[in-house]
């Protein structure tokens, strides 16, 4: 087989990055999948054999499925709050603020996003402690996570609102629609792709969060993320942690797949 010059160039351009990704992402994920079917981690000369026990444990032991539910419930709250808080803010940025002010305020919105998430979570312990009395409660976890992910929602909604032709709303208005009707029937539907994109970008990492619940939630941190972390840092039951991780991924994929047709419909319209 003759390897053309073109193929050599292509391989040398893409191979370094993708070999790196193979070693650090795809092989580890495969190893994790393999481990999730083992009785014990095959390290340090230990004998292990095939088992489905860890997957079975998730469905039979309440501590796992119930806390998994709590993780998804938390993600639902955080996502909802983010979208509700972000929409009017993004609308103000695209419709009522112009020029340099818009640029400056937009920058202010996305700036915290590029600062350390751990530090920002820690900063909430300063605010919520003492007389406020919210530290180590469930609302504290929600507040910290909304704070962490709100810029995502503002960003994606901003982008989709900005892409809408102003003339469409004007057309609706000239045909007799009230401002509210024009918003509800023209602007809102056209901005939904941005809302969905933001929601997905928030929902997935929040489900897998463990640092924020641990720092802000105290005893309320009992959820799937912290439980998985425990298997690797305290209990050292890697196969169980691996199985729980894949169950979490599988549920996320199922939810994405369920939402995809809906999402695709709006993308086509937009």
């Amino acid at each position: 087989m003759i390897i053309s010059r073109r193929q050599r160039v292509l391989a040398s351009l893409t191979a370094p990055a993708y070999l790196w990704l193979a070693l650090t992402i795809f092989l580890p994920l495969s190893a994790m999948l393999y481990f999730s079917f083992l009785t014990v981690a095959p390290v340090g000369g230990r004998e292990s054999s095939f088992t489905l026990a860890h997957y079975r444990a998730f469905f039979t032991k309440e501590v796992y499925w119930y806390n998994a539910w709590r993780s998804f419930e938390l993600a639902f709250y955080v996502t909802t709050f983010c979208v509700v808080l972000a929409y009017p803010a993004a609308y103000a940025l695209t419709h009522y603020i112009k020029g340099r002010w818009r640029e400056a305020l937009f920058l202010l919105v996305v700036l915290p996003f590029w600062s350390n998430a751990l530090v920002r979570t820690f900063s909430w312990t300063m605010v919520l402690r003492g007389d406020v009395g919210l530290l180590f409660t469930y609302p504290a976890i929600v507040i910290g996570l909304v704070h962490a992910y709100l810029p995502y929602a503002i960003l994606t909604i901003y982008v989709s609102l900005e892409a809408i032709e102003q003339s469409l709303t004007e057309a609706a208005r000239s045909l007799g629609a009230s401002p509210l009707a024009a918003f509800l029937r023209v602007t809102l539907p056209l901005s939904l792709p941005g809302v969905f994109a933001g929601a997905i970008l928030i929902f997935v990492p929040v489900t897998g969060s463990f640092m924020e619940p641990r720092i802000l939630g105290g005893k309320n941190a009992m959820m799937l993320g912290p439980i998985i972390e425990n298997q690797f840092t305290a209990v050292f039951n890697w196969p169980l942690g691996a199985a729980l991780s894949f169950i979490m991924l599988a549920i996320m994929l199922l939810m994405l797949a369920a939402g995809a047709p809906f999402f695709a419909r709006y993308l086509r319209q937009g």
């Binding site: 893409t14 993708y18 992402i25 190893a31 994790m32 990492p205 897998g208 993320g225 991780s245």
Partner: peptide, 26 residues
């Protein structure tokens, strides 16, 4: 190849991090 860029940014870090721990250790 472009789709393969999605897992590193979409899979929660908790899962990526623990998967790396398993593989690197092993």
């Amino acid at each position: 190849l472009q789709l393969l860029l999605l897992p590193p940014i979409t899979i929660p870090w908790l899962i990526i991090g623990t998967a790396m721990l398993i593989f690197f250790f092993w």
